[in-house]
Amino acid sequence: MRALALNYVSPLTHAGLADLAVLALLEEVRLTPKPGLVDLRGSGVHRDLTLRLMEHSAESLRTTFDLLAQEAARHQWVNQFLREELARLGRLGEHVMLQETGGVNTHRGAIWALGLLIGGLCVRQAPATVPDLLNNAGALARMDDRFHVAGQSSNGAQARIRYGVGGAREQAARNFPQIMDGLEQLYRSRKAGMSEQAARVDALLAIAARLDDTCVVHRSGLEGLEWMQQQAQKVLTVGGYGTRAGQTCYDTLEAGMQQRNASPGGAADLLGACLFIDSLITRGVIAWKS
């Protein structure tokens, strides 16, 4: 399989790119602790999810990510046809995921976010920096999928309609601003000498502090969302999860999420996207900023 047509320090095949996407999802789900979410300690507030199920789901998407990269590489730049082919392949990947999980939605949001990023990355007129990549992904998200057939409304879609929040689609259409929030916090915490675990928890909290997370809204309404955002920001304000004060504030956040039976699933999906982009930067696939 040929290498991607980008200025890599080390050539990366489409299959290699898919491996990085799967690895990012595995690293996200294994990150511990995460408030209300599946992690190494257990299933959080989710009765239908386990760590093993989430890992199996991530592994099942390897072929989907490979096909997404191959399709994007056929195009000079982002365009309507690419948008619709990515959507078609994403729906096939969703079908595989649901078959593998017995109908449980484990990674629908991650397929959406990573699919757009892979599409925006692998076009022949490739982006040079992370903002360029997010611009490409946003341009794809803003294009209509003329072949999408509306089916059963998801929990996130219901929350968007009921509460008027933007959700995953608006986040993508705005060039994923919370992915930038997460990456900036990840690098800020690393620079401050935090452990990699603490830096990644901080990245998750930075996303959660500003994201209109429909997973939280569905379970606990706007009050729950606002409370989570405030508490996530409080952890960061006192120094982050790697500090004693930050861990005390984090414990309050986690207890409150358990009480509200809520978890920031949308933020977790975007953390996976952050870890994917971070792996691309580390390997010299793309620059952080110009």
Score class of each variant (00 low, 15 high):
G167T: 02
N105S: 06
A203R: 11
Y163L: 09
M228C: 05
V217F: 05
D145I: 07
Q231A: 13
V130S: 04
C122S: 14
H107L: 00
M180A: 13
R162G: 02
S154Q: 01
Y163C: 06
M194N: 14
L98T: 04
D202I: 05
A206M: 08
L116P: 00
Y187T: 14
M228R: 10
E226Y: 08
V216T: 06
Q178G: 00
G224E: 03
Q229C: 10
V217M: 01
P131V: 01
R190W: 08
A157D: 14
R190Q: 10
Q233M: 02
R190F: 07
L121D: 03
P127A: 06
Y163N: 12
N155A: 10
G166S: 13
D181N: 08
L186H: 15
G119R: 02
V123L: 01
G221R: 11
A150Q: 15
D213Y: 13
F147E: 13
V96H: 13
I161L: 14
A150D: 13
G138I: 04
D132N: 11
Q229S: 03
Q231D: 08
R108V: 02
L225M: 07
I161A: 12
M180P: 00
A199P: 05
K234V: 08
R210L: 00
A172E: 00
V123Q: 06
F147M: 10
A113P: 01
L205G: 07
E226H: 15
I161C: 09
R219A: 06
A113G: 02
N136A: 11
E100N: 15
A232H: 10
N105E: 04
R162M: 11
D132T: 01
A139V: 07
R190G: 01
Q125D: 13
D213C: 05
G119N: 01
K191Y: 12
R200M: 05
A198S: 09
G120D: 10
G156M: 02
Q125I: 02
L92F: 12
Q231S: 09
H148C: 07
A113H: 09
L116A: 07
G138C: 00
M143C: 06
L117C: 11
Q158E: 06
M143E: 13
R188A: 15
E223T: 15
E170Q: 14
Q231R: 13
G193I: 04
G156R: 00
G164S: 09
